[in-house]
């Protein structure tokens, strides 16, 4: 494992911790898209079906468990916690995420590394992760104002993707048989979705003003 991959994973972990901190400290999930969170929980459940069949490392196994548990806990909290769920911006979170689900699954049936149950679900999770942030970005754009923790949450998620691209570039030059078209192309698409957000995040950081997205 190289430093870029590790940095990426740590950014990913940080984003989840920031989100948990926001929900726990403010007892509020305003500005957070339940649909995006549901998609992420599904992404991890579909991808880590290999948890019991393929052992890579203790690090991988622990991280997989952490991602599954934390993402399902966030969904549970937003739906069931009686204080937190009152702050959910349901009327703003209207992105039709079932469309993303269906499209990702259809693509996974067509483009996969091998036509097996696990490989199809793995490809599905890669495609779904690439677009899962869309309901969140749409919600932020609709609400206009973005609170600090929510802004940082999306920032760390984007940073995680950026480090994964550096990781693939590094692996491409250091490994002899590195070809992961499915993961790399989906990863590029996923990172590109953050470009707009990053631009406004940078502006607000530079001017030291509150993050605001144009309507």
């Amino acid at each position: 494992m190289n430093i870029f991959r590790f940095a990426g994973d740590m950014m990913h972990l940080t984003s989840i911790l920031v989100l948990l901190l926001k929900i726990y400290a403010t007892k509020s999930c305003s500005g957070i898209s339940l649909k995006t969170q549901e998609l992420y929980a599904l992404v991890f459940l579909a991808r880590y079906l290999d948890l019991f069949t393929d052992f890579i490392s203790v690090y991988n196994t622990i991280m997989k468990l952490v991602f599954i548990v934390s993402s399902t806990a966030i969904v549970w909290c937003m739906k069931r916690d009686r204080v937190v769920r009152r702050s959910y911006d349901k009327q703003l979170d209207t992105f039709r995420h079932y469309f993303l689900l269906a499209a990702s699954f259809a693509l996974a049936l067509l483009v996969n590394e091998k036509f097996t149950f696990q490989e199809i679900f793995w490809a599905f999770s890669i495609y779904l992760e690439a677009v899962a942030i869309l309901p969140q970005l749409v919600l932020l754009q609709r609400s206009g104002n973005v609170d600090n923790l929510t802004g940082q949450y999306v920032f760390f998620l984007g940073a995680y993707r950026a480090f994964y691209i550096l990781n693939w570039i590094y692996r491409y030059f250091t490994e002899t048989h590195f070809s992961r078209w499915i993961a790399c192309i989906s990863g590029l698409v996923q990172t590109a979705l953050y470009a707009d957000f990053f631009y406004y995040y940078y502006i607000s950081w530079k001017n030291n003003t509150k993050l605001k997205l144009p309507a």
Partner: peptide, 10 residues
């Protein structure tokens, strides 16, 4: 045909 690569990333 080539076997799929092991998914060693998260």
């Amino acid at each position: 045909k080539e076997q799929p690569q092991r998914h060693d990333e998260l």
